[in-house]
Design a protein around this nucleic acid. Structure first.
Length: 578
RNA sequence: GCACCGGUAGCUCAGCUGGAUAGAGCGCUGCCCUCCGAAGGCAGAGGCCAGGGGUUCGAAUCCCUUCCGGUGCGCCA
């Protein structure tokens, strides 16, 4: 129960009453009725559009209806005034007591403030990262990893039952290339001088696997045909890569619940099952694709393949689920994979890089077809991150192997800075990550700014402990009515936190939490700085313990909300700045 | 050619799923440190929300369309 849902209920009750007295026809759609803080504080503390939304279907004048609703709401003891404004807004002014009560609510709820049961335990599967197991995590994976993880936490926080899942692409051509690269390192370990040809993975992170295989199996695979060693080398290499990737993810505080293997999935014949289901509904047929548009493919030739009718779902082309050699396409296997995820979830979310945008429709189409539209799939596309250092783009080349690894970045700027920064932009917009700026101690840097606010709040306690006389305990029930209007105003902002969480969770947009925290931090800094002009308005005043205590409670509540918000983002709150 | 994502202050970006006079940071102008951390704060200037249609009490937000930028297109993964 938040302040906002409380008033939403109150409005419902008033509307029910108006229906009972015949002032309002029954059965009106109230879904668009909203309770919001008005953008302009001069309009009061809360506003509702109820009268404007309902006036037309009720065939009445919005202002007249608003007057009736306002009268009903005005009867509440916590409503100081209920005024009709503009085209029919109802602006409510709440008693100071309301905000003091909310402050006490924050204090009592502590780390749980902002949590809700909005999700009603709905099962949500969030698949994120799913980087190919062919090397360490690099910065290209980072944003999706953080966004997916924060979204998962956000959904948990708002009452969903969340599974964090990683899909291991261990069945395609890339992992064969990996196996061949390891074979080369294996020969190297046996004393050969090797040269890594174009197209194989040059990274020296494969050296250790080659050595291990050499010491276990000796030279028996050196001149042997691929058929004798490929599977073994591939399995070992993928396992080693996954250990490395999990370690990298752990640096960011990311841990998945489930790792699904594409190879296992295929061994279990899940794609076959999905194909049969779709063929039975005439959604898969054997056909020939047109030549691809755009860049001319030299080796293209028309072949009959099993095709999924994704055009029925808005795709521009039907999509093959098997290759001409009978093996599964990535899409064919992925479709089966999503089918299985859907069996244990009420809702699926995938976090993908924006370079996969072209494949969204087909997979959504397949999920919709396989689940009869019962399990929605939201694919969140995360745009690219441009790496800069002091405004200059970092030069990178994957081929030369000098891409920036995630581990390097975390080591340089820290987990919290990486996570916060990755969440400080809408994920469907491109982002710059400037090594110089993200660690800058200035207002230009939201990470610092929010952390600084929290550190200031913590410093108050250290200071307050010094001010306290020996034997004098912490005051359990300070007189909060000593708080002034400006101080109550920040509670109003803090009270929006549960709403922000709900909205961020519903819209699958964790960045909203970051922006909110920045606003809250700004409000706190402003309050703090009043003390510069007027010493009587500082948080701690040595000759006025009563006011100091009340303000300390206020500061603590703000600190609590900042901590809660940061924890949703997976960022630790700073105790002090260095 | 087609698809997806963008286009909001000089710059970087928010904008609460359709609300009232569109916001923040940087930069610019002017104030504020014997003072809990000034690593800050306050105030001001700065907008055809890319253009054009539409939907309605009401549009930066939804729909159509044009233009500009980014990404992608395959039996790859």
């Amino acid at each position: 129960m938040t302040l906002y849902s409380d008033f939403a209920d109150a409005i419902d009750a008033v509307l029910d009453k108006l229906e009972a007295t015949g002032d309002l026809p029954g059965g009106l759609d109230r879904r668009n009725v909203a309770v919001e803080p008005p953008r302009d504080p001069a309009h009061g503390d809360l506003a509702t559009n109820a009268a404007m939304v309902l006036a037309k279907p009720a065939k009445t004048n919005p202002r007249a209806l608003a007057e009736k609703i306002a009268a009903g709401l005005g009867e509440r003891s916590d409503v100081v005034s209920a005024e009709v404004a503009g085209p029919g807004f109802i602006n409510l002014r709440l008693s100071p007591r309301t905000w003091i009560t909310e402050l006490e609510t924050i204090r009592a709820a502590g780390a749980a403030y902002g949590r809700s049961q909005m999700g009603h335990g709905q099962r949500v599967n969030v698949e994120y990262v799913s980087a190919n197991p062919t090397g360490p995590m690099h910065m290209g994976h980072c944003r999706g990893a953080v966004v997916g993880d924060a979204l998962a936490t956000l959904l948990e926080y708002s009452g969903h039952s969340v599974t964090r899942e990683y899909y291991i692409n261990d069945a395609g051509g890339q992992v064969d290339v990996l196996a061949r690269s390891v074979h080369l390192r294996y020969r190297e370990a046996l004393g050969e001088t090797i040269e890594i040809p174009e197209g194989l993975y040059p990274g020296d992170y494969l050296v250790a696997i080659g050595q291990a295989l050499a010491s276990e199996h000796g030279a028996r695979f050196v001149g042997a045909p691929e058929s004798e060693w490929l599977v073994l080398f591939r399995t070992r290499a993928v396992a080693a890569m996954m250990v490395m990737i999990r370690d990298d993810l752990a640096l960011l505080g990311i841990h998945h619940d489930v790792f699904s293997s594409e190879a296992e999935l295929q061994a279990e014949k899940l794609p076959e099952a999905a194909e049969a289901t779709l063929r039975a509904r005439d959604l898969v047929y054997d056909g020939v694709l047109e030549a691809p548009k755009g860049e001319v493919a030299e080796d293209w030739e028309p072949v009959e393949l099993p095709l999924f009718r994704s055009t029925r779902f808005g795709d521009d082309q039907d999509r093959p689920i098997r290759k001409s050699n009978g093996s599964w396409t990535y899409f064919g296997a992925d479709m089966a994979y999503h089918f299985r995820k859907a069996a244990n979830a009420d809702q699926l979310i995938d976090i993908w890089g924006a370079d996969h945008s072209g494949t969204v429709k087909r997979i959504q189409a397949a999920v919709s077809a396989l689940t009869d539209g019962k399990v929605p799939l939201d694919v969140k596309l995360v745009q690219m991150v441009r790496l800069l250092r002091g405004g200059e783009p970092l030069k990178m080349s994957k081929r030369a192997g000098n891409f920036v690894t995630l581990a390097d970045v975390v080591r340089e700027v820290g987990k919290d800075v990486v996570r916060f920064t990755m969440l400080s932009r809408r994920s469907d917009a491109q982002m710059d990550f400037d090594f110089a700026k993200v660690v800058e101690a200035s207002k230009d840097n939201p990470v610092f700014y929010v952390q600084y606010a929290h550190a200031r709040i913590r410093s108050l306690h250290r200071k307050a402990d010094l001010l306290r006389h020996p034997g004098e305990g912490r005051d359990p029930s300070p007189d909060l009515s000593l708080l002034d209007a400006e101080e109550l105003a920040i509670i109003q902002l803090a009270a929006q936190f549960p709403r922000v969480i709900e909205q961020a969770a519903t819209s699958h947009e964790p960045h909203r939490v970051a922006f909110y925290l920045f606003d809250l931090a700004a409000a706190f800094h402003a309050l703090w700085n009043r003390g510069n002009d007027d010493p009587a308005r500082r948080f701690l005043i040595s000759d006025n313990p009563a006011v100091s205590r009340a303000r300390l409670v206020l500061a603590d509540a703000i600190g609590q909300v900042i901590r809660n918000g940061l924890s949703v983002m997976g960022v630790a709150a700073a105790e002090e700045m260095h």
